[in-house]
Nucleic acid binder design. Structure first.
Length: 427
DNA sequence: TCTGGGGTCCTAGGACCC
DNA sequence: TCTGGGGTCCTAGGACCC
């Protein structure tokens, strides 16, 4: 009997949102490009050229407007339908290369390479990289190692070292210590803004230092998550591959407004819109919600007087039906609304989720908590909106003038998900 | 003037019980 | 005058992720 050593790779799309924009506009290649968050608030993706200009991640757009204009940086509002669709193409390409894969985020996946006997994994990584580029246009980097945390480190090195040609294999590598020494402690997966300075205070400055740290001290100061990180750096796998992720435990839909909102009517419209989106997600994963929370808040950065309130509402019957949820959410909004504030953001959280099938029907009527006719209507609604774009069919409560709608002044077309926004080819 | 959104897991501490 | 000890469950908040 032989135990096969665990080998995992992390495939990460380079500057993903920027790369998506470049696929549909090749003139952006080689230029400085950034993508903005919802409401054109902060920077969420940067090309290497933009990074070289000193444009940081999550920096408010208005603070670097000058820098952007002076350097002719190309700016895009977030186009999540496009990025989501491109992500699916990348993931389905990756799935051809291993039977066991975990989609970790919109632009990252772990691929299990355990048991790939006699395969040159570095060469295999290059093949994956080439195929993804050819089939989707998206450049990726790949790190291969004995644990997820080390694969992340390999990926980081692959991104910054041109010699690597996009792939770094740390399995039985004699360069492992050298690689760990080149990674700052705050770049280690699991070490965030709070922990890094506390580690540095103790002289722990690199991934290599962290690997050598004393276990008991780490456990005491950084808990189980910290200890796991150290063990993973030592090559002991603590984090497994989640090939079929469990359904989400909560579903949130929230947005900051394009301009301050003061009237209850406008707030209710916005909340209605968010409830509809949240309910779609809920039905999409086949769950019912037991609790609905509405929250409102003023701008935490501004000089306006502050108000923040949230109200959790226990639903009389677990449900996934938009009209039911709307009714509760609008009542909740009225209860927490206070006149005289300039509201900046509102949101809806669905929690206490149950799998639809598992709810005992006999607790309610024969048909279960959501009557059959209502369920059919919701299905039809979701199909139309998925095909034609969110909000094509909407409830009256969602409003039509939408003064609260977020800013998105520089969005590219939804090339792959809207018939009316296909790429135009000029011959 | 203008500062995103959506998640997960862990821990400490309170409430409650025997 | 003195004020146990342990277990479980729940929740809020912290830290982290992309």
């Amino acid at each position: 009997m032989s135990t096969m050593a665990y080998v995992v790779s992390l495939v990460d799309c380079n500057n993903f949102y920027v790369s998506c924009e470049r696929v549909f506009d090749p003139k952006l290649e080689g230029r400085s490009v950034v993508v903005l968050s919802n409401n054109d608030g902060v920077i969420i993706s940067r090309s290497n050229e933009a990074k070289a200009l000193g444009i940081g991640m999550a920096v408010p757009f208005f603070k670097i407007r000058r820098l952007i204009e002076e350097n002719d940086v190309q700016v895009f509002s977030a186009n999540f339908p496009l990025y989501g669709d491109m992500s699916q193409r990348v993931m389905s390409t990756l799935s051809q290369f291993t039977p066991d894969m975990e989609i970790y985020s919109i632009d990252e996946a772990f691929l299990d390479f355990s048991g790939f006997k006699g395969v040159d994994l570095t060469a295999y990584g290059r093949k994956i990289r080439g195929t993804v580029k050819q089939w989707t246009g998206i450049p990726v980097s790949i790190g291969i190692a004995g644990t997820k945390t080390l694969a992340k480190i390999g990926n980081e090195i692959a991104k910054r070292s041109p010699k690597a040609e996009g792939v770094v294999n740390l399995v039985k590598s004699e360069h492992l210590d050298q690689a760990l020494a080149r990674v700052e402690v705050e770049e280690v997966w699991g070490i965030g803004r709070r922990s890094a300075p506390r580690l540095r205070d103790k002289g722990i400055e690199t991934a290599l230092d962290l690997r050598e740290a004393e276990e008991a001290w780490i456990k005491k100061k950084f808990g189980l998550p910290g200890l796991r990180t150290v063990l993973e750096l030592r090559g002991t796998p603590c984090l497994t591959l989640e090939s079929s992720p469990p359904p989400k435990q909560g579903i949130t839909t929230s947005r900051s407004f394009g301009a301050p909102v003061e009237s209850l009517d406008d707030l209710k419209e916005a909340v209605a819109d968010y409830v509809s989106r949240a309910a779609e997600k809920l039905r999409g994963q086949g769950s019912l919600a037991r609790i609905l929370t509405v929250f409102l808040m003023t701008n935490p950065f501004g000089k306006d007087s502050q108000y923040h309130n949230a109200i959790p509402i226990e639903l009389p019957i677990p449900t996934d039906s938009t009209p039911e949820l709307l009714h509760q959410a609008l009542a909740g909004t009225e209860r927490i609304f206070r006149k005289g504030y300039r509201y900046h953001k509102a949101g809806v959280i669905l929690s206490g989720l149950l799998p639809r099938g598992q709810v005992q029907a006999d607790l309610w009527e024969k048909e279960g908590p959501v009557p059959e006719r209502r369920r059919k209507l919701m299905q039809a609604l979701d199909r139309v909106n998925a095909r034609m774009g969110a909000g094509t069919v909407a409830f009256a409560a969602e409003g039509i003038h939408k003064v609260w709608r977020m800013k998105s002044e520089r969005r590219s077309k939804r090339y792959t998900t809207r018939w009316d926004e296909l790429v135009e080819v000029t011959v």
